Computed example of a mutant assay.
Amino acid sequence: MSTEPQSFEILLVPEHIENLRGESAADRALRVATVEATGETGASGYPRYRGQGVEADIDPSTRTVEALLVDGAELDYGLVAMIAPERGHGKH
């Protein structure tokens, strides 16, 4: 049985707001997708997750998106993919 998370919420946010203090990335996301584990390993060597038009290789130990396709294409310049904070651990 795998101990890796079975799903993640991926936020696509404009790159320029990634490091703003006091801003919630979730509030600024242009797109949000919940991806589920596929049981496959991506080309990056990390587990593959898929859902809502998004396919991602995610390092579950660091919660980092290592590879990403959105609607079958690479992410547009100026956008950043990040994993949403776990519920109950962020600001309300």
Rank of each mutant, 00 (worst) to 15 (best):
S44M: 15
G72R: 15
Q52M: 02
A84Q: 06
Y49W: 08
R28E: 10
A33S: 15
S2Y: 03
P14D: 07
I58L: 09
V80L: 02
G88H: 03
L20Q: 08
I10W: 05
I17F: 08
I58Y: 12
R48P: 04
V13P: 06
V13T: 08
A33D: 04
G22N: 12
H89M: 02
P60Y: 14
L30K: 10
A37Y: 03
T34Y: 13
Q6Y: 02
R63M: 00
I10D: 01
A43F: 12
G88M: 01
L11F: 07
G45D: 08
S61W: 12
G90E: 04
R28Y: 02
N19R: 08
V35S: 03
S7K: 13
G78E: 00
E40W: 10
L69K: 14
R48K: 15
G39K: 13
G78K: 00
S2E: 09
E86P: 01
E66T: 15
E40Q: 15
T38K: 10
E74L: 09
G39Q: 11
L68G: 14
Y46E: 14
G78V: 00
G42E: 10
D76Q: 11
M1F: 00
V35W: 03
V54L: 02
G22V: 10
G78I: 00
G53I: 05
P60W: 11
T62G: 03
V65W: 01
D71Y: 04
V54R: 08
D76Y: 03
R48H: 10
Y49R: 12
V80R: 05
A67C: 01
A37H: 11
A37Q: 12
R63W: 01
V80G: 00
R31W: 00
T34G: 10
R28W: 04
V13H: 05
L68T: 08
E18N: 05
Y77M: 05
L30D: 14
K91Q: 10
R87Q: 04
V35T: 02
L75E: 05
I10Y: 07
L12N: 08
A67Y: 04
G72P: 11
A29F: 02
G51W: 05
S24P: 11
V35M: 07
H89T: 09
G22Q: 08
F8M: 01
P60S: 15
H89K: 04
L75F: 04
K91R: 14
V65F: 01
I58K: 13
T64L: 03
A37G: 12
I17V: 15
D59T: 15
D71A: 08
E36G: 06
I10R: 12
A37E: 07
E74A: 15
E23L: 09
E55K: 11
E36L: 10
E86R: 07
T3M: 05
V13I: 13
A84N: 06
E40D: 15
K91E: 07
A56L: 07
S61I: 14
N19K: 12
G45C: 07
G51L: 02
Y46M: 14
V65Q: 00
E74I: 07
